[in-house]
Design a protein around this nucleic acid. Structure first.
Lengths: 216, 216
DNA sequence: CTCGAATTCTAAGGATTTTTAGAATAGCGA
DNA sequence: TCGCTATTCTAAAAATCCTTAGAATTCGAG
């Protein structure tokens, strides 16, 4: 028992920290960030056992990080509001800047998918056998994208696969230094028979290497 | 064992969530935010047993949230960099907006110290028996403060007590909706024989009630 | 009303974290 | 070199959290 009158306040504050202190819950939040899903869909897409997915959803709901609406026997879960992914983004940036192990894990992850460096991609910009794919939101794309990039948000990938040619190598990118969305897009594309690789460093790395982005 | 290749990344991300998932560690971070301290000082000022304080500091250091420098047999700990209190502030805002229990805990805490409302303070602005004290940083004070308020950051309170008169009632305020600094200042002042109360809602509440702040 | 599907609740086992005591280490002054 | 102080390390007990199975609940279709 600690001796300070603010303890109830810290107990409450810690609830949020704890909510983000589980890899499984972080995973579920990321997958829900794409689009709302039923418990069954979420468990399937996140690769988490159904019972655990449900259990974690109850905890996320208790922390007001997700909300659910019922349709018949199904409950559709989504992120509670837009501040949740905003805070998640800040958590990632904060974690990324101070944990070398996280940077290594991200780097290993990209490497395992044969990431393309900004230099390599710049050299292939006019190669007709290369397609550059922006898997961030359309709004992010509009704000700035790689020259010649096509916009196809991850949430829409499943429904718009037929828009992609099979005879090229797709280089997919997303946003910040913590780049999980494009690896997932790449694996999804590979699962569906496309040749795909992620861009190391995302659009941030592209900009940091001194290269320009378009807004048209 | 989960079935998604990003698990190592989520494991790392969760480290930060876990670091903030302990009321004791949150407390230590807040107290360190005032100024750097030795382990002994920190344990004393935070009201946490010495052994636990040291154990938690090792964990905070492992998460790169604090850093220590040795001076003889003593280690002086401080927050690792300015992004730590920034992130803490965002965590508080995020938690405050979604946890009614947290808002209640803060409110109860202020009430237990007989908080002064903005209306009450406004009515006493020209009362010579009332002193308004800004316990935020001098930089925050310069950006805007209550009319007639005196600046005395919490970190300097111990060293500058003699600047405060005993024959008035001091109303202390800090910044945002989550207001732990002024209650601590108030308790500190009371422990040293001053009559003090916190301002409910801090400077944010003052502004929200339509009242102006000065910058001179 | 019954049955099936989807989801949640409850409880338990296992894993992890927190806290603490005692031992160990580091540094300094005499 | 020795003794003292401050701090950390190690290990263990206690507490908490995670995961899961089985039961229970909710809803809709027939």
């Amino acid at each position: 028992m600690a001796e300070y009158p603010e303890e109830p306040i810290y107990q409450q504050l810690a609830r949020i920290g704890k909510a983000f202190g589980s890899p499984v819950r972080l995973r579920l939040l990321d997958v829900l960030g794409e689009r709302e899903r039923t418990v069954e869909e979420l468990a399937e897409d996140a690769g988490i056992p159904l019972k655990n997915t449900s259990a974690q959803l109850q905890q996320l709901r208790a922390a007001h990080l997700v909300s659910g609406r019922k349709v018949g026997t199904r409950v559709y879960y989504r992120l509670a509001d837009e501040r949740v992914p905003q805070f998640l983004g800040r958590l990632r940036d904060f974690a990324h800047e101070r944990l070398a192990d996280l940077r290594n894990a991200v780097s290993d992850h990209i490497d395992s998918l044969e990431g393309v460096t900004a230099d390599e991609l710049a050299a292939r910009m006019s190669d007709p056998g290369t397609m550059v794919l922006d898997v961030r939101s359309a709004a992010s794309y509009a704000e700035g994208h790689l020259p010649g990039a096509v916009s196809l948000p991850l949430a829409e990938l499943g429904d718009r696969l037929d828009e992609l040619p099979h005879d090229v190598e797709i280089v997919a990118y997303c946003g910040g230094p913590f780049c999980v969305v494009s690896p997932r897009a790449v694996r999804f594309l590979r699962d569906h028979g496309y040749r795909a690789r992620p861009l190391e460093g995302g659009i941030t790395g592209w900009r940091d290497s001194g290269r320009r982005v378009d807004t048209t």
